[in-house]
Structures are given as C-alpha cells and as structure tokens.
Design a protein around this nucleic acid. Structure first.
Lengths: 336, 336
DNA sequence: ATGAAAGCGCTAACAC
DNA sequence: GTGTTAGCGCTTTCAT
C-alpha cells in the first residue's frame, strides 16, 4: 500500500505529450497551446500528480527554501522578526528552514553548513554577534546572506537594523532631561559589538553631550544567560546601592526583570527610577507600569530582510545594502 | 567566479576509487578498508567536498527534514513547543521547515501540501483545531504526522498533550474551594474542540462535582483575534458587571489582559478576583501579581512529539500514540 | 571490500 | 508549440 508516486512521466504518457510539455504547464510557461494545457491539467487532476520539489531542486539548482538562523525562537524579539521573514517568504513562494543557534558561534557555523548542504537559495542570519570566524564562513559561500536585526561592524553582508547608536543616545538624552544624572546602561555581553560598539557608544555620546562624565560603574554588561529576566530581577539591589535613578536597557525581558526587581524593593517607577527598554516587544505593554521603549519595527525588519534577500537571489541590483529602518521613542509609564 | 561545485565524482576520480566507495565513507558505511577510507577522507578535505543534500534526497527518498506547522511563532506557547521540536530534531540530524498558519484551515492545508511537495520525512502539526477537511488531508498522505499541543477529538493521528479536562477541572475545583461561586470560563473560540470538548468539559465537570449550576453567562468564548491581550483587557468590565469573582483562562496573554483590565478597574487580585491561567509561559512570572497556572511541560511536548515522529519515521513500533504528559497546578499570586 | 551502472523526478537546452 | 535528451549529484542493488 505504499503510495505509488506519480511522476511527470506518468502524466506525459497518459496525456500523450512529452515530459517537457507537462513541465511547461506545471511551471506556467506560456508556450503551450490552451488545448494541450487543459488536457495536461486534466490528467494531472485525475492522477493527483504533485511535483516533487526535491527533483526540481536538483535539476534547476533552486530549492525555493531559505535558511533562517535564529538564536532562540522563544525570544520575543527574534520571534517577531522570524514572523516577518516567513510571511514575506511565503509571499514569494519560499519556505524557511528555521534553526536555533543559541547565539553560540559553534552552533551558528554548524547550522550554517547544514543549511548550505541543503542547498538553500539564501540565508537570513540573526545573532547578536558576528565573530571573525563566522564572517569568514559567510564570505566563503556564494549563497546570499542577509542579516536581520543583527549588526556586522564590518558591514560585509547586507543587513537590516535600526540606528542603535542614535536610538540609545536619544533615549539617554531623554533620561537626562528628566533630571537623571546617574543613568545605568544595562545590556547583554559587552564583547558583543551591538552592545559595545553601538548601544554603549550612543550612551556615552548622550552623556558627553550633556556634560555628564562616564562612569564605568554604571555599565552593566550581563554575561550570556538563559534567563535574562531573572538576571534583571537580581540587578535591582546593585542599582539601588549605586544610587542609580534611571536605566537604558537593551532587552525587554531584562527590563521587565529590573522593573519587577525594583518594585520588589519598593522603588517607585518612574518616580524614583526610570526605565527605557529597547525592543518594544509586546511585553512592554503587558507589565505595569508599561515600559517606555525605543520602538523598532520588528516585523518589518524581518520582512525587509526577506525582501532584500529575494532581490539578491534574483540578481537584481540593490541600492542600499545596509538598511536602517525608522525607530521612535515611545514614552509609556516607566518614564516621567 | 561561480563556486564550481565539487561532486562525489570529483572525489572518486581524484582518490582513484568509485563513487560508491566515496558514498560509503561519507555515510559511515563500515564496509570500507581503513586505508581507502583515509585516502578518500583526505581528498574530501583537499577538495572541500560537501555532500549535496538535495541529490541525496532524490536518490534516497529521505530528506532529513520535517515540516512544522505552527499557528504563529510569536505566540509564546507554540514558540516554546517549537524550540523543543527543533532541539530534538537537531539531535537526530533533522532540520525543520517552519510554516506559520495563523490557525486558518486554508493556510494549514496549503502549507501542508507545499511541505509534502518538498518531500519532508514527517510533519509536526500545531493548531487549535483539526477540521474534518484537515483530518482528511492528514489521512491522504503516507507521510507521518504528529500533533503537538493540539488535540484531535477523533485521535486519528498520534499526539502529545496534557489532560486538559482534568487540568481545568482541578483548577476550577481549586477556585471553588477558595470560596468562589461565580467562576468565569474564558477561552478562545468555542467552535474549537480544545475549548469546547476539553477545557469547557473540565470546567463543567468541576462545577457539577461541587453542585454549582452551570451558567452560560459565565462562559466567554473569545472569537479569533490577533491580540488576545487587548481582548482580555476589555473583558474586565463585563466580568465586574456579572459579579464574577474568579476565572479560569485558557491562554496566558488573554489572562494577562484580564489581570491588567481588572487592576485598571481597581479590582484587587487575588482578594476580589482570582485567576488561573493555562499555559505557564514565562509571561506568568513576569506580571504582577504573578499568575497561578496549570503548568505544562511546553518544551517537552515539542520534544516528545519530535521524538515520537522519529520513531514513526524509522518504522519502529510505538506503544502509545496519544500521549498525555504531566501537568500540575502552580499557585502563585493570582489565587488566594 | 570495491566497482559498474541504473535510476531518483525533474529542468533546460536544443531541435524541429 | 512540442519533443528529445542529457544531465542535476547522489544512493543502491548487483556483481565481482
């Protein structure tokens, strides 16, 4: 009872045409007489013929699948991008192979190679850090790669991001305007470029603009952790001890942790402590007080990345390879 | 400068062996003299040969990829399952093609067929409702399918779930023990079996056990919506008007909405209103008060589903095709 | 232990 | 407009 596969040959045979003709109607090639087209279509229906994408992929050297490397699907930030990616992919008849990397270089490289082995037509990479080794891997393949919500300081690959430097700078400036002098910078690992070379830079820029001296003590670079929320929660004590009155935080879960941690210590938000977070995931609106945030067009970052990738895969020339999408600063209830 | 693909032929040629032998070493077949194996391995490294998975797929009729149909990756519940699925898939050297369906029958069927066209070796389906049409599609393919966190009232396909009836029943019983008489049942659409045939059943069972008459007025079946959180928030007024003092809620985002909605109306949680939610996503621990919840082993549901799928794909016989994983009731701060 | 050769199901020249 | 045919890169009998 193995489902006997019906191939293009069977259809051709039964319809009294050549395989080429069947292939043409299946692929919507216009060079087919309406008559024969219908005949073929009929047989296709009778036989319940379904094209085999693997065979097609081997013959045409295109799989209409793209690889998507993501640190963790359960991270709202990346999941939101992934949704944008998949929607646009579907729109262009692509499928995505999704692979979690935990942001670990080893996994990233491994998964990149299996994706390549599967002959994906393109790759969208998400990750907080592009190491030299990884960059080298990127460059050693001819398969197009686009970075989504992920910076490459060397900008060797096309990418979609927001201007993290300016965004953070604006946020910090806001905090200063509200009267804060001791503002914490809380982010993921500082050995990740996005934190040290972008966000922290924006932070320092805003401080200097406002003639506030940079204090290393106020910089919290969280090391890689499975549960940023908990880390944030535990940070509260130190924040209080250091007499800090505000924070710019790079991750929403981390920010929620800080928020709850502070509240647990009876610190009033925003009266005694202000928070601005960075990703504007739906979390920001679910906690109380709602978190003020840099807003990013999460879905669009993914969507634009995928759209850009399709262009590159189609060999269309692209004008801008490192695109910055618009961000805004949304004041909710964690700022005065 | 097109990257000239090096094939198994090139390796065979340069190593002075047949393609069959190269194939054997690549696939770890033991029938190769250590000597030749090493010779081949050497050449593989020199030539930087990488097997083409598409060609392999066509020849072997196995793609080592499985399709994963998910309503929405940005839904924490499903994303958590997806993570479990991918981890186990990776462990077994499978990749996953992830496709969002929005839980819409049309999309589900469409995506199922493109997955099949891509010759996936198996499929994991997640969705709140299995329609007759969908079930028919499932049955018309010989590709194994496993349902994860998704019930099929007819149990035609293998599935991994928790016992929703008992879980909800216990939760409601708890609410009654706490003195509540007017307990709302809040869930997604009641035309979805998981809500009407399972959860609601558990709710009614607990009520009758406690001699409380079932009141249709207290049953809130939310129609399909993009933003359950907002829906929940708006529900508060009605809950108050109906003098309801507790609720069992089927979705965490929905529950958070209700929680915040009630708080906005100055209703004290849990003193004046108790909430038990159902999925125990990390959201439950991020809001204040923290939500009491039925706890589900989210990651494991996905992991077990994938593991079961590998067994079926390997034609191993399976003992239990409809598996119920353990749940518990975790009392946090939204219950007395 | 190794090789020869026939496909896997389709596409893409190229010819007519 | 339609057909012929040579691959795409690999696995898998079947011999030896």
């Amino acid at each position: 009872m193995e489902k006997q596969t019906v191939t293009i040959y069977d259809v051709a045979h039964k319809a009294n045409v050549s395989m080429a003709t069947v292939s043409r109607v299946v692929n919507g090639n216009s060079n087919v007489k309406p008559n024969t087209r219908n005949k073929v279509l009929d047989v296709i229906n009778q036989l319940k013929y379904h094209p085999n994408a693997v065979a097609r992929g081997l013959a045409s050297k295109k799989t209409t699948t793209v690889g998507v490397i993501i640190p963790d699907v359960t991270d709202m930030y990346f999941a939101s991008l992934a949704r944008g990616i998949d929607d646009i992919a579907a729109m262009y008849k692509y499928n995505i192979i999704l692979a979690n990397s935990d942001g670990k270089e080893g996994k990233e490289i491994h998964v990149l190679n299996t994706l390549l082995a599967k002959q994906v037509d393109g790759i969208i990479f998400m990750g907080n850090n592009i190491t030299d080794k990884l960059r080298k891997q990127f460059q050693s393949t001819s398969v197009p790669i686009v970075l989504a919500g992920s910076v490459d300081i060397k900008e060797t690959e096309p990418s979609i991001n927001i201007d993290y430097i300016k965004a953070v700078s604006e946020a910090v400036n806001d905090l200063v305007q509200n009267g804060n002098q001791k503002i914490a910078f809380i982010s993921g690992p500082l050995n990740q470029d996005i934190n040290s070379k972008y966000r922290l830079k924006g932070y320092r820029y805003a401080l200097s603009k406002n003639h506030i001296t940079y204090d290393q003590q106020l910089v919290y670079g969280i090391k890689h952790s499975d549960d940023l929320y908990k880390v944030g929660e535990k940070l509260a004590q130190s924040l209080i001890d250091n007499h800090i009155t505000a924070a710019i935080i790079s991750d929403d879960e981390l920010a929620v942790g800080v928020l709850n941690g502070m509240k647990a210590h009876n610190v009033k938000i925003p009266q005694d402590f202000e928070i601005i977070t960075s990703n504007d995931t739906k979390l920001t609106r679910m906690v109380r007080p709602q978190l003020s945030s840099i807003t990013q067009p999460l879905y669009d970052i993914g969507a634009v990345a995928m759209r850009l990738l399709t262009k590159i895969m189609d060999n269309k020339k692209i004008d801008d390879k490192n695109i910055l999408l618009h961000y805004r600063l949304v004041k909710r209830d964690s700022t005065k």
